[in-house]
Computed example of a mutant assay.
Amino acid sequence: MRPIFKALIFNATLITTSIYANEYNTQCASDKYSQHLVDLIISDHEQQRTKLRCDKRLVTAAIEKVAEMAETEFVFHGRANGRLRDQGVELPIYYGIGNANQVEALAGGQKSPKVVWKSFKESTSHADHLLARNAFYRKQTLIGAAHIYLPSTSHGHYWVVYITEEDNASEKNIFHGPIPNKTSHGVFHQSQNEKKPIN
């Protein structure tokens, strides 16, 4: 890991333990702004899930991702599923490998949780995931988010939300209809008949 990247992660973690202490749930978010975004997602009247539970592992992964985006000044998907697996989240086998993404929503430049939530809702692929408008996402009940503000960078504000499920041993080989894979180039679907992870 490059020194700048380590410093960004350290600074993001430092913010969560000092300036915003006791103003947010560390199991849900990295700061009060990402906590507000989580609250907006959970409480939205269009939310199709009956419950969402905060998970610290998702927050840790999100902190790493916002730091990476701030360092590169580029908002991009890459190894989204892998990043959660690195934190010990046991994703179902039908969640892809490589650059596959059934778990991550990113944004850059929006200055407030309300603005970033509005932009997520205006994006079909993000709204389908975050609000579980696509049936595939309705089993995802774990959430975690992070935000970082670095005014010297091109976007300033960087946002990450992870929503996922963990593996259920009785459902390892069951595909739930076409599996969406969100990329920077759009959403692609894996056929229900393909019995292998998305590459």
Rank of each mutant, 00 (worst) to 15 (best):
K118L: 11
E171I: 03
G108H: 04
C28I: 06
A135Y: 13
K51G: 00
I97P: 00
P3N: 11
T60S: 15
P151Q: 10
A146W: 03
V160L: 01
N81W: 03
P151A: 02
T183C: 06
A67V: 06
K139F: 02
S154C: 08
H36E: 15
A169K: 09
D128G: 00
W159N: 03
N81D: 13
H129P: 07
L52D: 04
N181S: 12
L58P: 15
I148A: 11
F74S: 12
N181R: 01
E122W: 05
K139V: 10
V75D: 08
L142E: 10
Q48S: 14
N134T: 09
N22S: 10
A7R: 14
A105E: 02
Q140V: 10
P178W: 07
F74H: 13
G96T: 13
R79E: 10
K6I: 08
T164M: 05
I148E: 14
W117T: 06
H126R: 02
F10Q: 08
I63K: 10
V187M: 02
F74T: 14
I148N: 06
H189V: 07
V66Y: 01
R79D: 04
E46N: 15
H77R: 01
T124H: 00
P178E: 15
G186I: 06
V160H: 01
P180A: 13
H176G: 02
H126P: 01
V75L: 08
E122T: 01
C28D: 00
Q192W: 09
N11Q: 11
T13Q: 08
R53K: 10
G96H: 06
E71G: 11
S152F: 02
K139M: 12
T60G: 13
G82N: 12
A145P: 14
A7F: 08
P178G: 12
L14N: 07
